[in-house]
Simulated assay, not measured.
Amino acid sequence: MKTGWLILMVAALLGVAGFTARLVQSKSHASCASCAANVRDPGTALAWMKSEFQLSEEEFQKVCSLHEAYLPKCDAMCERMKEAGTRLSSILAQSGPEMTPEAEEALRNYETLRAECQRATLGHLAETARVMKPEAGRAYMKKVLPHLLTTNQHVSEVTR
Rank of each mutant, 00 (worst) to 15 (best):
T3K: 15
G4A: 12
W5P: 00
L6G: 04
I7T: 07
L8H: 11
M9L: 12
M9H: 08
M9R: 12
M9K: 12
A11W: 01
L13C: 10
L13F: 10
V16G: 00
G18F: 01
F19Y: 13
F19G: 01
T20I: 07
L23M: 10
Q25H: 12
K27H: 13
S28L: 02
H29C: 05
A30V: 01
S31T: 14
A33L: 13
S34H: 10
C35K: 05
V39H: 05
V39K: 08
D41M: 09
G43M: 06
G43P: 01
A45M: 11
L46K: 02
A47L: 09
M49D: 00
M49L: 13
S51T: 08
E52S: 13
F53T: 01
F53W: 11
Q54F: 01
L55S: 02
L55R: 06
E57G: 07
E57L: 04
E57S: 13
E58H: 05
E59T: 03
Q61C: 02
C64S: 12
S65P: 00
E68C: 05
A69D: 12
L71C: 06
L71F: 02
P72W: 01
P72N: 02
K73W: 03
K73I: 08
D75W: 01
M77C: 03
M77R: 09
C78L: 04
E79F: 01
M81C: 11
A84V: 03
R87E: 10
L88P: 01
L92P: 02
A93I: 00
Q94L: 12
Q94K: 15
G96N: 01
G96E: 02
P97W: 01
E98D: 11
M99N: 08
M99H: 11
M99E: 06
E102R: 12
E105A: 14
R108Q: 14
Y110I: 05
E111C: 06
A115W: 11
C117Y: 13
A120G: 09
A120H: 06
T121M: 11
G123E: 13
L125K: 07
L125P: 05
L125E: 11
A126P: 04
E127I: 00
T128C: 06
A129M: 11
V131A: 04
V131M: 04
M132D: 03
M132H: 02
K133T: 07
E135Q: 15
A136Y: 03
A136W: 04
A139M: 04
Y140C: 05
Y140P: 02
Y140K: 08
M141R: 09
V144L: 04
H147C: 08
L149M: 10
N152A: 15
Q153G: 15
Q153K: 15
S156G: 11
E157F: 14
E157A: 15
V158P: 01
V158W: 00
V158K: 02
T159D: 10
